[in-house]
């Protein structure tokens, strides 16, 4: 729903006075709900609800052969699906541009070996490796997709269990992999370096984080900052506006500090999640 000028002015004045339309300050997030293990047949999954943005992430694992130039590494692939449930604009191929933008941003944020160690996914050098498919489904769009998606992806990877290999038989070009029979003996991924993205949105003279749908319409531009282990792993500028280098630096600084706080609270929350909690859409 497009906003009229008066509504935009109202949002703008709110940001100026450090009191946004929903009562938040400029650096506050909206309430989040996080659930893991919501998709029973996936190797790991998470659902994040950030006010009315809803993201479901599932991780599936397949055996694949590694890239010839990286024989020691596994593979990681992101796929974003914009469900028409979220908005009728996504019907047919309508959501494809957004999906590509999101998945490319994720892929570049995870490209560094510091972010996620792909060497752990190697089964046999140059021959076999695990391939992680991270499938992201957008169920409702209420602003701030990048942050929501990155948090959900990190939680889903935290939740992911990779089967243990019992034995590998090599017979010429045939490779036979035996997976451990015990379904509970799995390895978990080390996600301490998995990047979190923070969108810093410029409205008027000030920068805000976690913009809702109305604020996104008022902003001239936004900077997405992905932070992993105290380093920036990706910076992406979105929107049509332009930034002064000084403002851009401020944005990066703000995004960086917010991402570190977000990281701490996310790790704390993930640690608190108990297995076999009642989860799902019925709650």
């Amino acid at each position: 729903m497009p906003l009229c000028d008066a509504e935009k002015t109202f949002v703008l004045h709110g940001v100026d006075a450090n009191m946004r339309i929903d009562g938040r300050e400029r650096e506050d997030y909206r309430p989040m709900e996080l659930e893991t293990d919501v998709v029973s047949h996936a190797f790991g999954s998470a659902r994040l609800r950030l006010a009315n943005t809803d993201v479901l992430v599932a991780v599936k694992i397949e055996v694949d052969s590694p890239f010839p130039e990286k024989p020691f590494e596994g593979k990681l692939e992101f796929f974003v699906d914009c469900s028409a449930n979220a908005t009728p604009d996504f019907e047919g191929r309508g959501g494809e541009n957004l999906a590509v933008e999101l998945s490319n941003c994720l892929a570049s944020a995870y490209r560094s070996n510091e972010a996620l160690d792909l060497k752990k996914l190697c089964i046999m050098k140059g021959r076999k490796c695990w391939k992680l498919y991270v499938d992201i489904l957008l169920l409702e769009v209420g602003g701030n997709l990048f942050d929501a998606v990155s948090i959900a992806v990190k939680s889903a990877l935290y939740n992911t269990q990779i089967p243990k290999i019992k034995s590998i038989h090599v017979d010429g070009s045939q490779i036979d992999i035996q997976v451990c029979d015990d379904i509970f003996s799995c390895t978990r991924l080390d996600i301490s370096g998995a990047p979190l993205m923070v969108t810093v949105c410029k409205i008027g003279e000030h920068c805000i984080v976690d913009p809702n749908a109305a604020e996104e319409q008022c902003s001239v531009g936004a900077v997405v900052v992905a932070v992993s282990r105290g380093c920036l792993s990706t910076v992406l500028q979105t929107g049509t506006g332009s930034f002064h280098p000084k403002t851009l630096k401020e944005c990066l600084k703000l995004g960086f500090s917010v991402a570190q706080n977000l990281e701490d609270s996310l790790m704390e929350t993930l640690g608190e999640i108990k297995p076999n909690q009642d989860v799902g859409f019925l709650k």
Partner: peptide, 9 residues
């Protein structure tokens, strides 16, 4: 207008 879709997972 109906659209059916299945999540890839």
């Amino acid at each position: 207008n109906c659209q059916f879709s299945m999540a890839v997972f």
